[in-house]
Write a protein that binds this DNA or RNA. Structure first.
Lengths: 162, 162
DNA sequence: CTTTCGAATTATAATAATTACAATCAAATA
DNA sequence: TATTTGATTGTAATTATTATAATTCGAAAG
């Protein structure tokens, strides 16, 4: 964990940015919640526990910066907020997502899967691919088994969808 | 063109919704701009030309309704606004997009391409896929040829997301 | 060690997208 | 015709995000 912060620090410094305490706290929160898909507001609240004096605008700016450095990916699942997802170590492509339409859970797929598709697209459309976003919407394995077992118990979603 | 409106009308009626003049004007605008990826605001301005008395809230509501009926797909390219994309006639899956990081153009891919990938995902993750979103970010064929022509014009290829 | 300078941060204000609200209107029904 | 129901309107409210201006911090120079 420690060396990942070091690495990010070097990335920042290579572009003459600094790893300020606020930025460090933000990165720490992201590392500790690698599995989740936090919104800027979520990150803000969590960082505040470590560094209560931080401002929301700083969190936005830090996330923006980390996005430019490709440390995090900004993603939108259509619920009105942007979420920030830490890129896996050594990953050269953005991972994919499975969004459950019933419980709201978001699972990740680390495997590439798109290699062939990308070759086809680059050839047929003469489009130089730099990045991709692939999200499947459907029913996760948890909800499938629940559904067959207990008919339809209203399940609260993970995200507070306004 | 006329029969597509008829079809949408029937879809509405089958769920006991009505094709009101405002809804009809909105659908018409969508049909006339099938190639584009309009935001709610864009649609509003265009519909106003046909039906000046329409309100923005009605446009939002109509688009929401059409989205539920799967007549349009709501999509977000990360620029802060939702865009509404008419589903091709007879299409049973949402089409894919190529977003150019240089000129901002958005091209569409109608071919499926994901059949194999979806089989793998459904099997390996026991995830029942209902819908998908696939977007490639990169450089479109137009910008590629421009780039090679005027190779050393601007070194800056940074993509300002806003 | 002190001064200086520029980047970073803060609180707050502004903007932009979207949704909620309350009154009005229109078609459908009795 | 009177009543009910659903749709629309303009506006207000809410939410996410970005811009601003003043302040602080930290490294480099003296």
């Amino acid at each position: 964990m420690e060396h990942r912060i070091e690495k990010i620090k070097k990335q920042l410094q290579s572009q003459s940015y600094k790893l300020t305490p606020q930025r460090e706290a933000t990165v720490l929160v992201l590392l500790e919640h690698e599995e989740d898909h936090l919104s800027a507001e979520d990150v803000y609240l969590l960082v505040k526990e470590k560094a209560p004096e931080i401002g929301l605008a700083t969190v936005y700016r830090t996330l923006e910066l980390l996005n430019e450095l490709e440390v995090v990916d900004k993603i939108n699942f259509g619920d009105g907020v942007s979420r920030y997802d830490l890129r896996k170590e050594g990953a050269n492509h953005f991972h994919h997502h499975l969004v459950c339409m019933e419980c709201g859970a978001v699972d990740e797929i680390q495997e590439d899967l798109l290699g062939d598709v990308e070759s086809i697209v680059e050839r047929d459309f003469q489009f130089k691919i730099k990045d991709h976003r692939l999200t499947f919407h459907g029913v996760c394995h948890r909800c499938q088994t629940e559904d067959t077992a207990a008919a339809s118990e209203t399940e609260e979603t993970e995200y507070s969808s306004k």
